[in-house]
Nucleic acid binder design. Structure first.
Lengths: 166, 166
DNA sequence: TAGGATAAGTAGCATTTCGCAACCTAATGG
DNA sequence: CCATTAGGTTGCGAAATGCTACTTATCCTA
């Protein structure tokens, strides 16, 4: 039975992700950014975070390419922070974490809910899926060496080939 | 345009989730647990974490109902730590975080890869989906008050009704 | 063009957490 | 009964966090 290498070598993406997002306020700042917060003072007052910590966290996020810092043309006092593609790509992770917190937290009814703009229905609970979309539980999984994975023929998958996922 | 309430009131599940899992080693311990680590000394040597911190983190995880602590019958020196249902339910979140780290990290080829036991194909990248399975990007979303969401008629959804998700 | 207001930080200091190493305690095994 | 093992706890220095006050650059208005 193949097991994931755990020794500190960080051969898996998790330590890398935690290096960028594992600090105390990172996910809260990210959530604010997803909600249209763009300025230092906004983050500070909305989140109630200390100014020096916020400064440090924003620098870190920018340093990791998760956010972008741009001095505004119209008013050069103001600095505009925005999510990069890399930052936006954390959306599923953040929603998954949030959904877990809602499911197991102290029964928060969670208003407002995140809905699909097209039909105004709540988004689906984030689940682990097989290449063809079947939901997978923890007992449906095992590890394989990447070079031993046999590629699929075209059209064999039920979805438009969202590529790898480890 | 409705926006998510950010003020520290933590009306969303994210702060609750971070309260339980937001500390430095929590996700690494979780990963080890998913990989079959069950004992204090195993966690300690595999992760290279300080003993007092590990002790504290395990207590916290147990306290939050994410792990379970059981003294073993066969050898009462040994303590068996295992994931509860609540802990196992963090799997999608952890995989999402890990996949993100792999996609954007320093180009780690990621061996071994997590595969579906049934057909030995890598699991799909975790994405945000509409109730019917359509993948959703950040621009396909908006917020709605829970009581304003109009319930769907049966069979209108493409998947076996995985319930809410906010 | 001075003077005040605003935005985005920085600096100093107290408190908390982290991390390392050594120590402790209970159970086992010979 | 003594050594060993498993799972911690304790003490202490280093680092991160948080609060408040201060600074710097820019804008706006009189």
């Amino acid at each position: 039975m193949l097991r994931e290498p755990l020794a500190e070598g960080m051969e898996c993406g998790l330590p890398a992700a935690l290096e960028a997002m594992g600090e105390r306020w990172s996910f809260m700042i990210l959530r604010a950014a997803f909600n249209g917060i763009h300025h230092f003072e906004e983050f500070q007052t909305e989140l109630g975070i200390a100014r020096n910590i916020l400064s440090n966290r924003l620098q870190r996020l920018v340093g990791h390419g998760i956010m972008e810092r741009r001095v505004m043309e119209c008013d050069r006092r103001k600095v505009h922070y925005r999510l990069t593609a890399k930052g936006i790509d954390l959306l599923p992770t953040m929603v998954a974490l949030r959904q877990w917190g809602e499911r197991w937290g102290s029964g928060i009814p969670s208003t407002p809910v995140l809905v699909d703009e097209r039909d105004l229905q709540p988004v689906r609970a984030i689940v682990l899926q097989a290449h063809d979309g079947r939901p997978l539980g923890i007992h449906d999984l095992c590890w394989m060496h990447a070079h031993e994975v046999r590629p699929l023929r075209d059209g064999q998958s039920g979805e438009p080939a969202v590529a790898l996922a480890g």
